[in-house]
Design a protein around this nucleic acid. Structure first.
Lengths: 350, 350
DNA sequence: TTGAAAGCGTTACCAA
DNA sequence: TTGGTAACGCTTTCAA
């Protein structure tokens, strides 16, 4: 049968309470008994029963990290950084490690709520929500309510890359400056002389999509340049690929395309190449995110760099309570313009 | 205070046992009572206590998915597929959903063991280990022992992309045919006329590294072509970038480079471009994995395609017990050669 | 510094 | 079909 704490206690000739104290290390225990207990643990190959422990302590070692798309390195990088930060702080019950687990919502509000319920059920120590969220009012309300309940039950809530929900004061929030980043991206293209710029946007109902699009439009408006065509689609390659056909159909004279993120940008590039158009000769492509692979993939790409790793680490620390959130609970992560290769000035096409 | 099952029972005027039965749905309950209970659950906004449930039932809804690098889409794609497959089978306790969580080991054996212990502690329903493993005997032994203990405690163990450990009969294993895939990749280059082929390999002590390298050498041996330089490094871009300098230093006349995976291949490409070498004119690059982005990124790349999505789904189903493992517990996932763009025949360089 | 014992909230067995 | 009630394995006062 499985070894229990009582077995360890018997073997170490102490009470269960003492074993528990040794394991949790939050209590004074004589060094000699401590050693005896630890030896017994080793000899019996004892593993703490998590559920029992969590039940008694009314909290668990679980930290949930919700991401929109685990196959997208954008989230992978942040999640990885958060997990490292969470793994660092070893001081909890039963050995101290927190179990940082990432849950893939696939961008679906329903699955997001399901995961939140599951984590609530597990009495998770903390929950990190990564990436933009849907803006549908009913979903927002449901999420807000759920998060409030989690916070109320003692679960730390951290938002990373998504705007804080109204009235949700007890969640720390790290927001990306999507507007400014997007504005810079477009300003850069305008500075090169581009006047006919298409936009391959993300899904219409997401915060990131809206904010990036707003920044793009701000830049155009400020320069007095008329807005070019915009096409919405998923945050993936195929969407970029398909959007390109549509954009060129709407304006065959485009000299530049801004993509909602790097993955979309790659799809745009693929479509352009297929049509025999040079990048950035015939058409310049700019993207958001600056995923590590795009550096090598498309050397001529202009991107906006989000410090994903740093944001992830910070989110992890906030979740651990290792670091306190700023007063007001909101901090802005700035995007930085990165130009990889050729300048890509516009030229007329035949 | 938090609502308990007893509260629901009181409100529905039934016994706690009945509420439990309704919630788990594995027991006959009169439709009328059932509705009454469900209504009470709703009205009280009751959420099952996971730890208590797991303690009593001696198992949990948790399914752990261990990956070597969550920032690598190779794992992201598999993990995503596995999570979908796991989410599908809704029939467990308390609503039925399983909580599929991915844990990032970062390729570290220590973290791998830590996570396994954590999952063991949580009485996880299943554990999926994705990706190649370290071949150090002591780590292998430790892992084997841990997996045996998990299996013994009723946790389903699935290996995906890693060879089964000796004597570990109770783990279902999905192995990638890395050898054949790598052989095909090199055969393709040989078929194009390449005779001086460098190899940018992964870390020396990993199964995937060894198998792919073996396939590469098999192809060379069969063709009677002498082996070119090989450089080991991590499975990341930088490693590919750095390996390229070393490979070219060892043989400046290389006409082709095989990379241990696509990410490495991108690093190789970056290094080649930086040296003013055309791809695939001066040097052809071939990579393993076929990540979705490489298609657009380097259209001239030759890759070996692993059906990551399908493998992930299968792994998920095995973890759920929805599908039975093949007799012997071992199934092979074949790699398929994919030629993206130019043929890349060798040409002499000045 | 240590021990005794009362929960923690479910599940599942045994009756009814 | 339902109820009563021991577990389940740990944490945590309260005493000693």
């Amino acid at each position: 049968m499985t070894v229990t704490l009582a077995d360890v206690a018997a073997r170490a000739r102490v009470s269960p309470a003492t074993v528990s104290r040794v394991l949790n290390g939050n209590y004074p225990v004589a060094e000699s008994t401590r050693e005896r207990v630890l030896r017994a643990v080793d000899e019996l190959d004892y593993v703490l029963n998590g559920p029992a422990s969590s039940l008694a302590a009314a909290t668990s070692d679980l930290v949930g990290v919700l991401v929109n798309d685990i196959a997208d390195p954008f989230f992978g990088i942040m999640a990885s950084a958060a997990q490292s930060a969470i793994g660092e702080g070893a001081s909890g019950r039963g050995g101290g490690e927190k179990l940082a687990v990432v849950c893939n919502t696939g961008g679906s509000p329903a699955r997001e709520l399901t995961y939140l319920t599951l984590l609530q059920r597990q009495r998770a120590a903390a929950v990190i929500l990564m990436g933009g969220s849907l803006e549908a009012p009913e979903h927002l309300a449901a999420t807000t309510a759920k998060l409030a309940k989690l916070a109320e039950a003692g679960t730390r809530v951290v938002l990373c890359g998504r705007p804080p929900v109204t009235g949700d004061a007890n969640a720390a929030a790290l927001v990306f400056d999507n507007r400014t980043g997007a504005r810079r991206l477009t300003e850069h293209l305008l500075g090169l002389g581009h006047r006919r710029i298409g936009y391959a946007a993300g899904p219409g109902d997401r915060t990131t999509t809206r904010h990036r699009l707003e920044g793009h439009r701000d830049a155009l408006a400020a320069a007095g340049v008329p807005e070019g065509p915009t096409v919405h689609g998923a945050y993936d390659r195929r969407a970029g690929y398909e959007a390109t056909a549509e954009l060129l159909a709407r304006d065959p004279e485009l000299t530049a395309v801004v993509a909602a993120n790097d993955t979309v940008a790659l799809g745009v590039c693929a479509a352009l190449r297929e049509r025999g158009l040079d990048i950035p000769g015939d058409v310049s492509v700019a993207g958001f995110d600056d995923l590590p692979f795009s550096v090598d993939a498309v050397p001529s790409l202009t991107t906006v760099h989000l410090p994903l790793h740093e944001a992830g680490v910070r989110a992890g620390r906030l979740a651990m309570g290792t670091e306190e959130p700023l007063a007001g609970g909101l901090e802005q992560v700035s995007a930085e313009l990165v130009v990889r290769g050729s300048t890509g000035r516009p030229r007329t096409r035949g």
